[in-house]
């Protein structure tokens, strides 16, 4: 009897205990290996953190052009896509190395207050007023932005606003201000929806609700296919011009900011080769970003 029992013994643990220990060892080993890899990834190579807007990131432009920069300078570009407002805050607190945003007034303040070293406007496109195919506000292509917005107010057609202090949102509010409408009075109505979201989500919502909204070109052309209820109404008012600038962050107050890398990024972005690459970037046949200061039949923008 005792021999049989001895044979059944497998040490203090039993098979199940051994399985558990093996699993734990495997998990710990995996985590250790992961830590090594990630540490290497984070510390190994020089990098810059580019804070940009969701519309730029989602347009796919950066995926298209950044590999060239990374190869040339051997600097990795880490891209975080937030609203222009948040990007500027990141810059102010030294959490980003360079900004690529489209909110001119805020950008100018950013530099004049010493947070940014220089502001270089490189690209432009235009905002669009899009709306439902059945067009309850009766917009025409010849309407300018104020006229279109006035028609929307008068017809009390549903309008979605990003409401997130982004460049797009600020442009939208500027148009309303010119019509003597404040954000608060608008929010008090039943047809104006302030959604607090990025452009993509806002467009999706606009499509669902068959409403009007202001959008940037890049996001629109990228998402057009999944927005069957919407079409473009107004797209050539000077007021609707949208300028993109690159601003390296002033790192004098912060140890972590890579000013050198940011400066290189600006140089490279301003170079003719890069600008050509951007000019040639098309989505669904549309050029998303025009070059600032270039006349080739497009409306020449002035800032």
């Amino acid at each position: 009897m005792r021999n049989l029992r001895d044979m059944n013994r497998s040490g203090a643990l039993g098979t199940k205990g051994i399985v558990i220990i093996i699993v734990i060892i495997v998990v710990l080993a995996a985590l250790a290996i992961g830590t090594y890899f990630i540490f290497y990834k984070e510390e190994g190579k020089e990098s810059i953190l580019l804070a940009t807007t969701t519309s730029v990131a989602d347009s796919g432009l950066l995926d298209h052009i950044l590999p060239t920069f990374e190869k040339k300078y051997d600097i990795e570009v880490k891209v975080t896509a937030v609203g222009s407002g948040q990007a500027i805050e990141l810059g102010k607190n030294g959490n980003a190395d360079v900004l690529f945003v489209h909110s001119p007034t805020d950008e100018k303040n950013f530099v004049s207050q010493g947070y940014g070293t220089v502001r270089k406007t490189l690209l432009w496109n235009t905002f669009l007023i899009v709306g439902p195919t059945d067009n309850p506000a009766s917009l025409n292509a010849t309407d300018n932005a104020s006229a279109a917005f006035t028609k929307i107010v008068d017809s009390k057609s549903t309008f979605t606003s990003r409401g997130d202090a982004s460049g797009t949102n600020k442009k939208e509010l500027a148009i309303w201000t010119a019509l003597n409408k404040t954000q608060d009075t608008l929010k008090a109505t039943s047809w104006y929806l302030s959604v607090g979201q990025g452009m993509g989500e806002t467009l999706t919502m606009t499509n669902e609700k068959k409403a009007y909204t202001l959008t940037d070109e890049a996001t629109w052309y990228k998402m057009e296919g999944s927005l069957p209820n919407l079409k473009v109404y107004v797209n050539n008012d000077k007021v609707l011009l949208n300028y993109y600038s690159v601003i390296p962050v002033n790192g004098s107050k912060f140890a972590n900011v890579n000013e050198d890398g940011a400066a290189k990024f600006l140089d490279w972005m301003s170079s003719q080769d890069t600008l050509n690459m951007i000019k040639d970037y098309k989505v669904n046949g549309h050029t998303l970003f025009q070059l600032y200061g270039v006349r080739d039949g497009a409306v020449e923008p002035t800032d």
Binding site: K41, T54, D58, V79, S226
Partner: peptide, 24 residues
């Protein structure tokens, strides 16, 4: 994390990104 591709993008934040872009 900032949802940075190749660095801090995880499944949940990737889902947010794809949803934002309409890639349901």
């Amino acid at each position: 994390g900032g949802n940075i591709e190749g660095h801090t993008r995880v499944m949940t934040t990737a889902i947010v990104l794809e949803t934002r872009m309409g890639n349901f």
